[in-house]
Design a protein around this nucleic acid. Structure first.
Lengths: 376, 376
DNA sequence: CGTAGACATGACAGCGCAATCATAGAGGAC
DNA sequence: GTCCTCTATGATTGCGCTGTCATGTCTACG
């Protein structure tokens, strides 16, 4: 096999041999220098680096991977959506991966695709990644596939058949507990929960944290309403809850649902926070600017990703060393204007006060929304 | 060099030779089957596939890349943030990349890092990607680095030194124009623009589209206020604009800024949309549920990503074939409740209505209405 | 002064696959 | 029947690098 002539007659990209020739050393020594191995004299090191720079030499990763059996890349299985949580995880992981000198490969799954995680994993393993990160995992048939590299699971219990599984939990439970306690301490008799889809571990964590807080305070545990993370599902849940005058405080499992829920309250004539308090989860960028500004909880995506990745890389590079325990992240509750003490007495019945812009129909959509006009 | 013994004594992963032996054919024939080459009998094909399945064989991508000179991977340069636009692009690209049978590698840049794009590109090129996608590009020193693979630029003019550059534009200009025209058609004398940072091509496109619409309608062009995409910058801009009673309509370059701007209006005692209409851009998930539900414009991320990637792959695989022109995407203006006709002006003198588009100052520039963009 | 060790470099094999070339049989054309 | 083409398969080589081992030089110390 001959090397392909570059189209356009441009010179071929240089090899390490070319660098070696130019520097007057062996090819192996070039390799040593570029890998920062010991036993290279300062003079030779400089000559090699100069030669490499002069030629614009870049190591061929494929050859490196083939020869060394390692790709120095990490694969991420993420959800194929622009949801704030998953997107934040992904970017936190990217930063962390780069910091430890690895590169990132991404495979997305589609919510609802049963084999999604498995096929994403297969794709990554086929690419020869040295480790895998599964972010925002959901409860799907993952155990079926055997993963032969270390796995970092963000936010879920380790339920894998892999040589090494490390986890980094956000402490979503603790955060949820703090959010719930914030409402209880304001004087609410109890707190309703608008949960995320329970296939998601992170949704379960939040629900568990909410439950803990209620128990610790001896509060009643009202029935849980389950949404799908979307503002629309929060809106739908909000319509249900608005009919129940005893609801004075809701903890929503993410900000989108909280905003949908608030919208439904306003349309039903209930004021937030005077009649009903709402706490969200995530602190999305607009949370501080919606009406009312949303009290919410901030997840330390970056910090958790960094710590988790450090563990993962350690397991990859030194499988025998004992792992240090992960440090707990501080809980960040961001109190804004969507929470307040409960109203003096519960509101009787489903009161319907008119609010501005509530000219919508009784069902489904929020008022005045969604009139897509398609222009050519 | 001997193959590394797997820790734990598990059997080594199978090679194509193992498959060949089991199927009773040569290694080359296994390669033929797996690459879907012609000249393989149906019988042999079946035997090989069966053997591969039985052994759980997966091709070694590093070896494939080394031998063939192609990695079948696409690199993406994206912004390292969870902003809705960039995140949506990334996920659209992921889907598109997977559809054409490639894999995805990601390198993020940090806003404000001058060499960010260049270093991200270098990293991807070092990984041997067959093509590069630059999404949401900003005006930074990219020309300095020579890229020796085809490049797809999403949403910017082609300004690259690369063998082939294809672009896929969202038509942000057309969308911005539609948004502005929507406001003009409601009867507003003119429309203010809360622009994105002008280092971003997409921000410039939106500004240009806004300007076009104003000119086409013969409307005055008020001074532009520039934000940084964040709701906070929208809020700051909103505080400035709220002091100017002549402002009746604003087109914000993204939804976050629109929401911040609305918040500032409400706090200043101006009602939306009765006193002032606001249009956003992006249709973020909560746009329909904020108060008031936001009129905005939806970008066809997935469709544009898919079309752009199809072009890119064609250039990679058949560099000589002529490219088909990209199809225009339909403009999707989503009209909700944040826009309305302008308020009737109070009549200052008998029988005479004030002309609404007269704004203060000799050059029509209210003092201090320029909100500086945050450039780290 | 001889030898163990630390340091510095090079020769060479081979990672797992795809590409090139060689080969052999199956049909058609004449 | 001979020649040629088309089909189907195998033998061999090499992609560019890293790992192992060999070799050589220089210091330290009994």
């Amino acid at each position: 096999m001959t090397r392909l002539a570059r189209p356009g007659g441009s010179p071929p990209t240089p090899r390490s041999v070319d660098v070696a020739r130019l520097a007057g050393v062996s090819q192996k020594t070039v390799s040593r220098v570029l890998n920062d191995e010991q036993y290279v004299s300062a003079d030779v090191r400089r000559r090699v680096l100069d030669a490499a720079a002069e030629l614009g030499y870049r190591r061929n990763q494929a050859a490196r991977a083939l020869a060394s059996g390692r790709t120095r890349s990490i694969g991420v299985v993420t959800l194929g959506s622009a949801l704030y949580g998953p997107a934040s995880w992904l970017m936190g992981i990217e930063r962390a991966v780069r910091e430890v000198g690895y590169t990132l490969r991404v495979a997305a799954t589609i919510e609802g695709d049963p084999g999604g995680i498995a096929s994403a994993l297969t794709s990554l393993l086929g690419q020869g990644v040295d480790g895998v990160v599964i972010s925002e995992p959901i409860d799907e048939g993952v155990g079926l596939i055997s993963v032969d590299v270390p796995v970092l699971v963000l936010g879920a219990p380790p339920t894998f058949a892999a040589p090494q599984v490390v986890t980094a939990r956000v402490g979503a439970g603790r955060l949820a507990r703090a959010a719930t306690e914030h409402l209880l301490e304001l004087g609410h008799a109890t707190v309703h929960h608008l949960a995320g889809p329970q296939r998601w571990y992170s949704a379960r964590d939040r629900l568990a944290g909410w439950r803990e807080a209620l128990r610790a305070h001896g509060a009643d545990e009202p029935p849980v309403v389950e949404g799908d993370w979307s503002a629309a599902s929060g809106y739908a849940a909000g319509r249900e809850l608005a009919g129940d005058g005893t609801v004075t405080a809701v903890f929503a499992a993410n900000d989108d649902m909280a905003i949908g829920l608030i919208r439904a309250q306003l349309e039903a004539g209930r004021r937030v926070p005077e009649d009903i308090s709402v706490v969200g989860f995530d602190d999305i960028p607009v949370a501080a600017y919606v009406t009312p500004p949303l009290t919410t909880v901030r997840q330390p995506f970056d910090e958790v990703a960094r710590q988790g990745l450090a563990l993962l890389v350690q397991v990859i590079e030194k499988p025998d060393v004992e792992l240090p325990p992960a440090a707990d992240q501080p809980v960040e509750l961001v109190v804004r204007a969507s929470t307040a003490p409960p109203p003096p007495r519960p509101i009787p019945g489903p009161g319907r006060r008119e609010i501005p812009h509530a000219h919508g129909g009784p069902h489904g959509q929020p008022a005045g929304s969604e009139v897509p006009s398609t222009r050519p």
